[in-house]
């Protein structure tokens, strides 16, 4: 039960309180670029959520078994080739290159899958699909997971990593969809000329970020409520 409460806390933190876009500023490019129509924004959000989960699963696996300090696989190989047992192997230098590889191949995989099974969706995404590779939100999720795996005292399991990734993706979808809804309304408004385009979008994002700051502390509240419910 403790685990589930912990997972809920991670999910709330990633999706609302420390929203990827509005608190950590990752994924700003699609947030400003693909937020003109609600349906496109929802599609983009779903694609990003899917890629983020896939990349988080792969990068957790690689980091846990291969890249973190005291990872089992390199130590085993080291012993196999006859190295001394007390040598410390730390391959975390390679993690950035590994993550970029993982993300690029996940995006490639999603692209192939969509082209084969959902050609119409594939066509409507166009150039934005390969651009998911350079979406900072995905690399950011991988890096957050890596940070948790560097600390040997409280290693994250796969369920925690996946919760962070899915909740982060949902948070991104929420933010970009809200933005698209506001910008559709904005087409009918008389915006001062210099502010038209990215200027007003950023000001709106600032106000949204202020609104999202209102969620601060919600995770503790929910955690306390759930714990008192159980005991």
């Amino acid at each position: 039960m403790e685990t589930i409460i912990n997972l809920i806390q991670i999910a709330l933190l990633a999706a609302l309180i420390n929203n990827f876009v509005l608190h950590y500023f990752v994924g700003i490019c699609p947030f400003l670029g693909v937020s003109r129509r609600v349906d496109m924004a929802v599609g983009m959000g779903c694609a990003v959520t899917f890629v983020i989960s896939l990349a988080a699963f792969l990068s957790w696996t690689f980091t846990y078994y291969l890249l973190r300090p005291e990872a089992p696989l390199p130590a085993w190989i080291w012993k196999l080739v006859g190295g001394s047992a007390d040598a410390k192997i730390d391959l975390s230098v390679l993690s950035y290159i590994m993550y970029i590889f993982v993300i690029a191949s996940s995006v490639q995989f999603v692209e192939m899958y969509l082209r084969k099974f959902f050609p119409s969706l594939y066509k409507s995404f166009g150039v934005f699909l390969p651009l998911i590779t350079t979406n900072c939100a995905i690399l950011f999720a991988c890096l957050e997971i890596m940070k948790q795996l560097q600390n040997p005292n409280e290693l994250w399991g796969l369920h925690e990593a996946l919760t962070l990734a899915v909740a982060g993706g949902i948070g991104f979808t929420i933010a970009i969809t809200l933005m698209a809804g506001l910008r559709e309304e904005l087409d009918l408004c008389d915006v001062p000329k210099p502010f038209q385009g990215p200027g007003i979008a950023l000001v709106i994002a600032g106000i949204m970020a202020m609104a999202f700051m209102g969620f601060t502390g919600m995770d503790q509240g929910v955690k306390n409520a759930l714990s008192s419910l159980l005991h």
Partner: peptide, 25 residues
């Protein structure tokens, strides 16, 4: 305080972009 928090970044960048746009025009 708002300026060093996340919303400040969005607001300042938005106003700066608008200023640069206005100047160019």
């Amino acid at each position: 305080g708002i300026m060093v928090l996340p919303p400040g970044g969005f607001l300042v960048l938005g106003i700066l972009l608008a200023t640069s746009e206005w100047y160019t025009h």
